[in-house]
Amino acid sequence: MTIALETRNLSKHFGGFTATNQVSLTIGQGARHALIGPNGAGKTTLINLLTGAFPASSGEIYLLGENVTTRPAWQRVQKGLARTFQINRLFAGFTPRRSLMLAVAERYKHGWRFWRALESDKLVVQETEQLLQQIGLTDVADELVSRLPYGKQRLLEIGLALALKPRVLLLDEPAAGVPEEERHEVLTLVKTLPEDVTIVLIEHDMELVFSFADRISVLVQGELFLEGTPQEITASAQVRAIYLGEDG
């Protein structure tokens, strides 16, 4: 197995509080890996460590075979790591088309060409149109982001991550807050993401987790509690006890 993302005894302390404790994960290239656990389990902290938003207190992080533990976030992005957030971080005054154009242009290092309209760059325009189609926003491409339904804003955030051409994509609760009538669009996009992209999903929506993941890690109180296939996780009395309050 070619390893895309690996952590070795990764820990994060905030003063006397331990948010993640000695977490070791090995995620293969092209994997569909889910991180689940109750609120406060350390899932988002782990994502912040992987992306460089938080420095690790101890342990190591390897991205595509390279130790990136002390690398800044932008270098991890350049190496192929991208993420989405629990709460959208979008430019409300832009349109989806303009947002994606800027992201694509930056990847091509064309963003600094301030004297030249992005619309004149054929590569940028072509890729932007492909992304709009992929994420299902062609019909609202020129609407202001602030006017889009929340589900479509979530689709746009995933599209912005895809514009970076990531090799490893971290999705932090992509269905969080999305109304039921819009959820199917997010679920469909997540399940149809490129097979060569390694995807790590944090999600409380178990329907999405079990329809998506080929392997699941359960975090509890900052520690790796259990890891296995969806079938193994479903069969675990310990996991049922954590989520449902059942006696183990």
Results as ranks from 00 to 15, higher is better:
residue 3 I to A: 07
residue 6 E to D: 05
residue 8 R to G: 03
residue 9 N to V: 05
residue 10 L to I: 11
residue 12 K to E: 04
residue 13 H to L: 14
residue 21 N to I: 02
residue 26 T to Y: 07
residue 27 I to G: 03
residue 29 Q to W: 08
residue 33 H to G: 03
residue 47 I to L: 13
residue 49 L to S: 10
residue 52 G to S: 08
residue 52 G to V: 01
residue 53 A to H: 12
residue 53 A to M: 14
residue 55 P to A: 15
residue 56 A to N: 05
residue 63 L to G: 11
residue 64 L to Q: 08
residue 65 G to K: 12
residue 67 N to E: 09
residue 68 V to I: 14
residue 69 T to I: 07
residue 70 T to A: 15
residue 72 P to I: 15
residue 73 A to S: 14
residue 76 R to I: 09
residue 78 Q to I: 09
residue 79 K to P: 01
residue 80 G to A: 12
residue 85 F to H: 08
residue 85 F to P: 00
residue 87 I to G: 06
residue 88 N to T: 09
residue 88 N to L: 09
residue 89 R to H: 14
residue 94 F to N: 13
residue 94 F to G: 05
residue 96 P to F: 02
residue 96 P to E: 08
residue 100 L to W: 01
residue 102 L to D: 02
residue 106 E to V: 07
residue 109 K to W: 13
residue 109 K to T: 13
residue 113 R to C: 15
residue 114 F to H: 11
residue 115 W to A: 15
residue 117 A to N: 14
residue 121 D to A: 12
residue 129 E to G: 05
residue 130 Q to P: 01
residue 131 L to K: 03
residue 132 L to N: 06
residue 134 Q to K: 13
residue 138 T to F: 02
residue 140 V to C: 06
residue 142 D to V: 08
residue 144 L to D: 11
residue 145 V to N: 02
residue 148 L to K: 01
residue 158 I to P: 00
residue 161 A to D: 02
residue 161 A to N: 03
residue 163 A to E: 03
residue 164 L to R: 13
residue 166 P to W: 02
residue 166 P to F: 05
residue 167 R to W: 06
residue 170 L to F: 13
residue 173 E to V: 02
residue 174 P to W: 02
residue 175 A to P: 00
residue 176 A to C: 10
residue 177 G to R: 08
residue 179 P to C: 05
residue 183 R to E: 00
residue 184 H to K: 15
residue 184 H to G: 06
residue 186 V to Q: 06
residue 186 V to Y: 01
residue 188 T to I: 04
residue 201 L to C: 09
residue 202 I to P: 01
residue 203 E to V: 11
residue 204 H to L: 06
residue 207 E to W: 10
residue 207 E to L: 13
residue 213 A to F: 06
residue 219 L to I: 10
residue 220 V to T: 12
residue 221 Q to I: 10
residue 223 E to Q: 10
residue 224 L to T: 00
residue 225 F to E: 11
residue 226 L to S: 02
residue 227 E to C: 07
residue 228 G to S: 09
residue 230 P to L: 07
residue 232 E to P: 10
residue 247 D to M: 12
residue 248 G to A: 11
